[in-house]
């Protein structure tokens, strides 16, 4: 939507287009298969039959970052992996979102104190939109995180914004 943004003043047509675009985009958030550790199993369980991510439109996990909207960082981030996470994030096309799943990605988790090889939070590497705490978070918690992300997407607009101070 880069070519549409910031061209029009906010008005009735824009808000309707916004509503339509955001409705479409929030209901088809396609995640990247990016399970690192234990949280990946709960992410798989969230995608499986009982908790069903597909009813949110988010069930189409893409293996390649080029086709993904959302990077659910599920699991501990280590220094060795950090470069790859950054590269994968850079390979994702806009608009892209990052959901930090689990205590390890939020702030280091149980490895905070003596984990010499653990990055204390994935927000030191990529910008994060939603944090889902838990160790591991229940699939329902991941669904809540996804719903928060959907709210965030619905709040976006293509209208001209005032320049930030």
């Amino acid at each position: 939507m880069g070519w549409l943004r910031n061209r029009f003043e906010e008005n009735f047509a824009i808000t309707t287009i916004d509503w339509a675009l955001n409705w479409a985009r929030s209901n088809s958030v396609w995640p990247l298969t990016f399970g690192l550790a234990c949280c990946a199993i709960e992410m798989m369980a969230a995608g499986a039959s009982r908790f069903d991510l597909d009813r949110f439109g988010a069930g189409a996990f893409r293996a390649t970052p080029r086709q993904a909207d959302l990077m659910i960082v599920a699991g501990t981030v280590t220094f060795k992996m950090a470069a790859r996470i950054r590269r994968l994030w850079e390979q994702m096309p806009e608009p892209k979102y990052v959901l930090a799943m689990g205590a390890c990605t939020v702030g280091g988790g149980p490895y905070f104190k003596y984990g010499y090889h653990v990055v204390k939070g994935v927000d030191l590497i990529v910008p994060v939109d939603v944090y889902v705490p838990g160790c591991p978070p229940r699939p329902e918690a991941l669904l809540e995180g996804l719903m928060r992300l959907q709210e965030k997407i619905r709040a976006e607009t293509i209208a001209k914004r005032a320049e930030p101070a």
Binding site: G75, T76, T78, M81, K113, Y114, G115, H117, V118
Partner: peptide, 15 residues
Amino acid sequence: IGYLHRCAEKIGENV
């Protein structure tokens, strides 16, 4: 390997 090296053994020596 080593992309998930979470220092479990070092933690074991400290708790």
